[in-house]
């Protein structure tokens, strides 16, 4: 039995050296399929992240009458907080509004308030929304709830409705395009892998037939082929992960923070490579055993 185990392991690894060409083609094919899938995954994940980031910036600004005293402001804050969909309220006082104004216009309007002689900017609440409410309908619901409150007029509450409408429109287009591209990528990857499996089947036909004829058991036939399939697929996964990592570094897109690629993607590609390889050898064995 030990003699047999040594043989199947040795035969598995020797097979990689013996069938160098078909092994390289198999590894390359798996790598190409996984690079396609990897690029698609990176784009999808990062698109989702960008959308989430843009949506999280959506907020309602509630401008307050100058006449409101501290007590009224706190009361109003409490009432807004109770509205379903509100996650956070930031109070911007009249003084903070001036600082923001300066920050926004830099040096252009430096003496504006001195010339005017008073601060015309109102205090305000910035109302941030919960994730589920970062949509056109969600924001509109919170908007309608706020304007029903006493002391608040419609024109006192503003939010970037047009931006949200535009964002949702582009998200819908992106989802449709993403689905089409995703299907094409998956079909291409499957076609490449199935071709790879045919190649494995073709290259292993004689050896499987010979093994069967001389009385090898299933164990002796299968194990070396599975070792080869797993190693070739794993190598394909490693090549695809290294290629994508290099591409990200080369394009400096990851460093600049434009695209964020989690290590999970690289590990997933490597694991998927090994799985594709072993599934190829399983198919080859099933075809000839």
């Amino acid at each position: 039995m030990i003699q047999g185990l040594i043989f199947v392991i040795k035969e598995g690894f020797m097979g990689l050296v013996r069938a160098r060409f078909s092994g390289l083609v198999a590894t390359f094919t798996v790598a190409i399929s996984l690079i396609l899938l990897g690029v698609f995954l990176i784009i999808t994940v990062n698109f989702g992240r960008v959308v989430e980031n843009l949506r999280s910036r959506v907020e309602l600004e509630v401008f307050l009458e100058d006449a409101l005293n501290e007590e009224n402001i706190q009361k109003l804050r409490g009432e807004i907080k109770k509205i379903n969909g509100v996650s956070e309220i930031i109070f911007i006082s009249k003084e903070m509004a001036i600082l923001e104004f300066h920050d926004l216009f830099k040096n252009e309007q430096k003496d504006y308030f001195e010339t005017l002689g008073y601060n015309p900017l109102p205090a305000s609440f910035r109302v941030k929304l919960k994730e589920d409410f970062q949509t056109v309908t969600g924001a509109e619901y919170v908007f309608n709830e706020i304007i029903t409150l006493k002391q608040i007029n419609t024109k006192d509450v503003v939010y970037r409705k047009e931006f949200l409408v535009l964002l949702e429109k582009y998200i819908k287009i992106a989802i449709v395009v993403g689905l089409i591209v995703g299907v094409i990528v998956c079909i291409s990857a499957l076609l490449l892998v199935s071709n790879n499996i045919k190649l494995i089947i073709f290259s292993k036909a004689t050896i499987i037939e010979t093994m069967k004829l001389v009385g090898a058991t299933r164990f002796f036939i299968q194990v070396p082929l599975h070792i080869q399939g797993t190693v070739q697929g794993f190598m394909g996964g490693v090549v695809s992960a290294l290629f994508l990592y290099g591409l990200m570094r080369l394009g400096s897109v990851e460093i600049s923070g434009l695209i964020n690629v989690s290590w999970k993607i690289y590990w997933s590609l490597t694991l998927m490579g090994a799985l594709l390889g072993v599934s190829g050898s399983f198919t080859a064995v099933r075809r000839y055993l």
């Binding site: 039995m1 003699q3 047999g4 043989f7 035969e11 013996r18 069938a19 004689t206 050896i207 037939e209 010979t210 093994m211 004829l213 001389v214 009385g215 090898a216 002796f220 036939i221």
Partner: peptide, 29 residues
């Protein structure tokens, strides 16, 4: 069993082709 087309394994030498029938049946080295 022998065939018209020999069915030898091209990736190994003569000794290993013959020994193959013993190795795959777990015979001692």
């Amino acid at each position: 069993v022998i065939f018209q087309d020999f069915k030898l394994l091209d990736d190994r030498d003569v000794f290993e082709n013959v020994a193959f029938a013993l190795r795959v049946t777990g015979t001692r080295s």
